[in-house]
Structures are given as structure tokens and as C-alpha cells.
């Protein structure tokens, strides 16, 4: 990611390929981790890795890192709505 440009110019071939390599490595890692029994935290590890991967996709491939501030802030809204919705649903499911 050292290739990162500033402003609104899009990243180049090299950045994309580096991002892709990182994504492939992370996929390998997430599969490898399941071979080790990490017990209850395995889902957290899986989701954490998935989130790093989707962060790469968002930031590099989808140019979110290079967009104006509106896009970054707006992106938080659906994430927030989803997270809170799931949390409120679990307030029911968890304590039922």
C-alpha cells in the first residue's frame, strides 16, 4: 500500500496487485486458522480476517480511501444500522 496516491487520483496497477496478494494471503490464513482449534474465539478470528479483507477491497479496489469525506462518513451509516439492528435483535434472543 506504499503506492497510495493522494487526492482523487486512482491507485495504479501495482497497488491493485499488492492488494490482491494480501487478500490471497489472508484467505490462506483464515483457512489455516480453522485447522488450529481456537475454540469459541474462532468466529471472532474469522470475522476479523474477513473484515480486514473487505477493508482492503473497500479501500483499494472500491477507492473508498481516495474518495471525498462524504463517502467515508456515509459508509458508516449502513454499517451502524446493521450493527445496531443485530445488537437490538440479540437483546431479545440473548435474554429470552
Amino acid at each position: 500500500m506504499e503506492q497510495r496516491n493522494t487526492g482523487h487520483t486512482a491507485p495504479g496497477f501495482k497497488t491493485y496487485i499488492i492488494a490482491w496478494i494480501a487478500l490471497v494471503i489472508l484467505t490462506a490464513v483464515t483457512i489455516a486458522v480453522t485447522k488450529i482449534d481456537t475454540g469459541a474465539i474462532s468466529i471472532l478470528v474469522a470475522l476479523l480476517i474477513a473484515s480486514v479483507k473487505s477493508g482492503l477491497i473497500l479501500y483499494i479496489f472500491m477507492h473508498l480511501g481516495y474518495e471525498r469525506r462524504f463517502f467515508k462518513l456515509a459508509f458508516l451509516l449502513p454499517v451502524l444500522v446493521f450493527a445496531l439492528s443485530i445488537w437490538f435483535t440479540f437483546l431479545d434472543v440473548w435474554y429470552r
Binding site: T30, A50, I57, L58, M62
Partner: peptide, 23 residues
């Protein structure tokens, strides 16, 4: 169209561990 495609990819990034890698 690219944005759409990446999003579909991103959803798969979550589906994969949630279905195939449960331990």
C-alpha cells in the same frame, strides 16, 4: 459496475468463513 462487483465479492468474503470454516 466495478463498485457493484466488488461489493458482491466483499459479501462472499464474509459468506466463505461463515459457512465453510466453522470450528
Amino acid at each position: 459496475s466495478g463498485l457493484y462487483w466488488h461489493l458482491v465479492d466483499m459479501i462472499w468474503v464474509y459468506l466463505f468463513p461463515l459457512f465453510y470454516l466453522i470450528t
